[in-house]
Amino acid sequence: MTDTTTTVTTSSAQQHTAESLSVWLVDRIAVYLKRSSDQIDATVPLAEYGLDSVAALSLCGDIEEDFDLVLEPTVAWDYPTIEALAAHILEELSTQAGAA
């Protein structure tokens, strides 16, 4: 489990935590599903919610756009739940912030 108290500062000076990323992702996925955010479980694979393989690729573009991050296009395939994806984004943010 990722420690949700870890914070990362990006170039845009925004502070992200696993929790804030999770909230962001839940909101996105909820829109895909036309459900309210509280009906989305962060531990359920996105594919179970009907996110097809190509649409999952486009999620990567959304993440890049909002967080100024460069990711593998298959990131949502390799980290198939919101929980896993949030942890991965956090890790990438800290790596890329550290490298900058």
Binding site: V31, V54, D62
Partner: peptide
């Protein structure tokens, strides 16, 4: 394009 309008559905 909204998010749901980017899927097969």
């Amino acid at each position: 394009l909204s998010l749901e309008d980017r899927t097969a559905l």
